[in-house]
Amino acid sequence: MGSMGNGSTPTIATVGLTKKYGEFCAVRELTLDVRRGEIVAFLGPNGAGKTTTIRMLMGILQPTSGEAAIGGLDCFRERVAVKRLVGYLPDEPIFYDYLKGGELLDFVSEMHGLSREAGRLRWEPLVGRLELHDALGEYAVNYSRGMKKKLALACALLHDPLVLILDEPTNGLDPYATRSFHHVILEKAEEGKTVFFSTHLLEQAEKLCHRSAIICNGVLAAVGTLAELRGLATENSSLEEIFFALTQPGSD
């Protein structure tokens, strides 16, 4: 795993982040720090609040209370500036009908303020690595799920963001693409970019991340490196068993 960045101001910082939908509390008092160059995996059972947290980080939802900041900027109030720093990959990317992959990439690069040529310089190598080149002439809506994810990943990395926020990034990717993805993520971390992703694949999290955060029923059950987590729960070594121990229906 790459070197961790200097532990100065955290790139992603949430303090007491809470989100309530009416009476139902989706995320409760979440306090989390992610430093520069770190890869943090966000784990949790279904419905635990992972997607809600990520949406709050992206400024799509306003937190009921608490704060979320990326690069020192408030995620909701200064979301335009935050968007410059962040690359987002949603869980189920849905694209416009009638736009081809290449045109979508052009659109995204223009919206981020790059000219078409500059954008093309950025995304061609990415697209080559993800083996998406042949498909760019086809309408995006006809892609298989894995290819849509790949295209969305290319869109997210296009403007060279400081922070990557990925929701289930390898969901639907074949083993080749997963391996490419891992390489890309590790490279970005070495360059000093921060990666925050949610996943269900515990082996992937174990292999890839510096630290893991486990959320259950909206509450942060544990956060830390594998060694720290082991200290919290049991003597068992695998993340999977720690996960099950911490997210039992009876616990926190």
Partner: peptide, 15 residues
Amino acid sequence: VEGEALWMLYTFPRE
């Protein structure tokens, strides 16, 4: 007409 692709507009650094 944005349909379900509205999320894309939220990722750009523009209001």
